[in-house]
Computed example of a mutant assay.
Amino acid sequence: MNYQGVLTKMQTEFGNPIQYYLVFADDFLHMNQLLGKDMEITFSGHQCLNCSKSKKIYRQGFCYDCFYSSPAVGDWIMKPELSTAHLGIADRDLDYETRVQLQPHIVYLALSSEVKVGVTRKTQVPTRWIDQGAEKALAIVEVPNRYLAGITEVALKQHFSDKTNWRKMLTNEIVSLDLLSHRHEILDKLPGEVREYFDIDKADLYELQYPVLEYPKKINSLNLDKEASYKGKLMGIKGQYLIFQDGTVFNIRGFEGYKVTIEV
C-alpha cells in the first residue's frame, strides 16, 4: 500500500511499549505494526508547515520567510530564558507568546544517553520525553511560566548536559544512573526565585519502553536531500527516529515539511 503526505513529527501514545503514529492529511500509519516489515520512503517535494506553500524547507518544517516571522519559532522556543511575555513584552506576537509562555512549565532530568536537563510545558509530559528517546525522566520543579523554567535550566546546565547524544541513544548505550539521587542534590543549585516551587517529596519517575526489535551497532543517517528514496526493514522506533535493519536511521522530525510517499 502507498501512503502520501507531508511529514510531521510522529504522534505518540504512552504505553508499554510506546505507540507511534505517522499522520498525514488524509491517512495515518500505526508505525508499530510495521516492525519487522520492509518499507520504502520516497521524497517528492516540500510544503511549509506554516504557510503551506511549496517552498524549500529552511528549519523545523518552515520555509525561510516563515522561520524568521512566525512566533512559533522565536528564539525563546530553544532558549526559554529569553521569554518576555510575563513582562508584557512581545518578541513577534504577544498574544501567541502569552498563550504559550504563561502556562505551567516543567524543568526535568532525563536519561536518554546520559543525564540531561530540559524544559517543557506541563501539557507535553510525557510526550517531550518520548520525542527525546529518554529511558527515564523525572520532573524537578513546576513553575508558572516559561521564563522561570528557562533560568532554572540555565542554572542546572552548569551541572548537567542539555543535549542528547543521539547516536548513543539509538545504539542503546545508556548510562545506568539513579535520577532520584540527583534530584535530592538539586535545591542548592536552583535560582532563588524558583526554590519555592521545589518539593523534595514529589518525585514521579517515568520509565519508557520503546518498540525496538533490535538495536544497531553502527548507524547511518538517511538524508532525503541526498538520497531521495530508501528501502529497508523497520526494526525499531525510538524518539522520533525510525531504525532499520542495515543500521540506517531516519529522523522524522528533521524532515518535517517534506512530501513523501511511503510504500509498505
Rank of each mutant, 00 (worst) to 15 (best):
Val6Tyr: 11
Val6His: 11
Thr8Asp: 13
Lys9Pro: 09
Met10Gly: 09
Gln11Met: 11
Thr12Tyr: 10
Pro17Ser: 06
Tyr21Leu: 09
Phe24Asp: 14
Asp27Thr: 14
Asp27Gln: 12
Phe28Gln: 15
Leu29Thr: 13
His30Glu: 13
His30Met: 08
Met31Thr: 13
Gly36Trp: 02
Glu40Asp: 07
Ile41Leu: 13
Gly45Met: 10
His46Met: 08
His46Arg: 09
Asn50Thr: 07
Lys55Ala: 10
Arg59Gln: 15
Gln60Arg: 14
Tyr68Ala: 04
Trp76Gln: 04
Glu81Thr: 00
Glu81Tyr: 06
Leu82His: 01
Ser83Ala: 15
His86Tyr: 12
Leu87Glu: 12
Ile89Glu: 10
Arg92Asn: 01
Glu97Met: 06
Leu102Gly: 03
Leu102Glu: 11
Gln103Ser: 10
Pro104Gly: 04
Leu109Arg: 02
Leu109Ala: 04
Ala110Pro: 00
Ala110Met: 10
Ser112Cys: 13
Gly118Lys: 01
Arg121Pro: 05
Gln124Pro: 01
Pro126Leu: 04
Trp129Met: 06
Ile130Trp: 07
Ile130Leu: 11
Ile130Ala: 07
Asp131His: 11
Gln132Thr: 01
Ala139Glu: 07
Ile140Leu: 14
Ile140Asn: 01
Val143Glu: 00
Asn145Pro: 01
Arg146Met: 07
Tyr147Leu: 03
Gly150Met: 00
Glu153Val: 08
Val154Cys: 00
Leu156Phe: 05
Leu156Arg: 00
Leu156His: 02
Phe160Lys: 01
Lys163Asp: 01
Lys168Trp: 13
Met169Glu: 06
Leu170Trp: 08
Leu170Phe: 11
Glu173His: 10
Ile174Pro: 02
Ser176Asn: 15
Asp178Pro: 11
Leu187Pro: 04
Asp188Gln: 10
Asp188Pro: 02
Lys189Arg: 15
Val194Phe: 05
Phe198Met: 12
Asp201Tyr: 14
Tyr206Ser: 08
Gln209Ser: 14
Val212Gln: 06
Glu214Trp: 00
Asn220Leu: 05
Ser221Trp: 11
Leu222Thr: 12
Glu227Arg: 09
Ala228His: 15
Lys231His: 08
Lys231Met: 12
Ile237Lys: 04
Ile237Pro: 02
Ile237Met: 15
Gln240His: 09
Ile243Arg: 03
Phe244Ile: 07
Asp246Ala: 05
Gly247Glu: 07
Thr248Arg: 08
Asn251Tyr: 14
Ile252His: 06
Gly254Cys: 07
Glu256Cys: 15
Thr261Gly: 10
Thr261Trp: 10
Val264Tyr: 14
